[in-house]
Design a binder for these strands. Structure first.
Length: 300
DNA sequence: ATCCAGGTATGCA
DNA sequence: TGCATACCTGGA
């Protein structure tokens, strides 16, 4: 069929400012959207970004003052201003939160906060965050994005034009492992199947997590097949706005070794250090350090 | 070509 | 508990 015509027929709203105002630099916008917390944003020029979450398809860009603007297909635009504001956590001032981090006594952190000014933790839907990070093990960001696209294309819900949401967990449950594997998920397919089984048979499992104390929320997540400590912490940070979360992956391990001298520390020890050193918003610090390490060389 | 990637589950001291 | 190993897949 004619994807191009379908796409061209999409009428997009005029650009509107996200309210309350959300400020980025182009660097921090790119790092926020395409730096490993979300996997469905793309940009041809690093100026205008197009992304999907839940049943939302949105374009964003910055105005002259670095304020975030959005546009969406007219067909999806009702109530979109609120959903965009929620997704970007517009009611939160990352400068204020960053100010609670120990940058006054930590030169590494101070430099990171300067370099990545405006970097945010997004508030993504919990169910999708679990799905995407369940696919993330042993993968680079580019690969995770490929898996997410395949899942959406093969099993997702149609939005407008050729665009599709990620599949619902119930769709995963009803799809059979072969069709999940066909989405390049590899050995993660049985994890998706097992987790979908659990979530479908126990509705409210994820909703209960949201209000649970951190340790029990973490336990509930790691009880799911394919979800270890790292994935669970990412899900809580990016999908439940638990800012005390401090996921330790290979990048953070490298960063903490290089920048804080934690050579040969185990992930659990690094996480304990991170929480103790950075405090209740350790997750934001983690994202800054992740950005620094990941962009250390021009490669990657 | 061989290796490794935002890890997890499993099996063995 | 603590450490080694296998595991899909794709890009360098």
């Amino acid at each position: 069929m004619n994807t191009r015509e379908t796409d061209a027929s999409l009428a997009w709203t005029r650009w509107k400012l996200v309210k309350p105002t959300v400020r980025f630099s182009y660097r921090s916008l790119r790092e926020t959207l395409d730096g490993g917390q979300s996997f469905r944003w793309n940009s041809a020029d690093c100026r205008t970004w197009e992304g999907i979450w839940s049943r939302n398809l949105v374009r964003v860009r910055l105005d002259q003052q670095g304020r975030l603007q959005w546009s969406s297909p007219e067909a999806l635009a009702v109530g979109m201003d609120e959903r965009v504001a929620d997704y970007f956590v517009a009611d939160m001032d990352p400068e204020k939160i960053a100010d609670t981090l120990p940058w006054r006594s930590d030169d590494v952190l101070r430099k990171a906060l300067e370099q990545w000014k405006g970097l945010r933790i997004l508030r993504q839907p919990l169910d999708e965050t679990l799905m995407t990070f369940l696919c993330s093990s042993n993968k680079r960001i580019i690969h995770i994005k490929q898996i997410c696209e395949a899942l959406a294309r093969n099993l997702g819900e149609p939005l407008v034009g050729p665009h599709r949401s990620l599949p619902k967990w119930s769709t995963i449950r009803n799809s059979g492992e072969a069709s999940i594997r066909a989405c390049k998920t590899g050995y993660r397919a049985p994890y998706l199947m097992g987790t979908s089984e659990r979530l479908v048979s126990d509705r409210g499992y994820l909703d209960d997590l949201k209000s649970a104390p951190y340790p029990s929320a973490l336990r509930a997540l790691t009880a799911l097949p394919g979800v270890g400590t790292k994935v669970a912490e990412c899900v809580l940070l990016f999908g439940a706005a638990r800012m005390e979360s401090f996921p330790v992956d290979t990048w953070i391990a490298k960063a903490m070794a290089r920048l804080y001298g934690l050579h040969d520390w185990k992930p659990q020890q690094i996480a304990a250090f991170g929480r103790a050193h950075f405090g209740p918003y350790a997750g934001l610090a983690q994202q800054y350090l992740f950005a620094m390490e990941r962009n250390r060389k021009s490669s990657n």
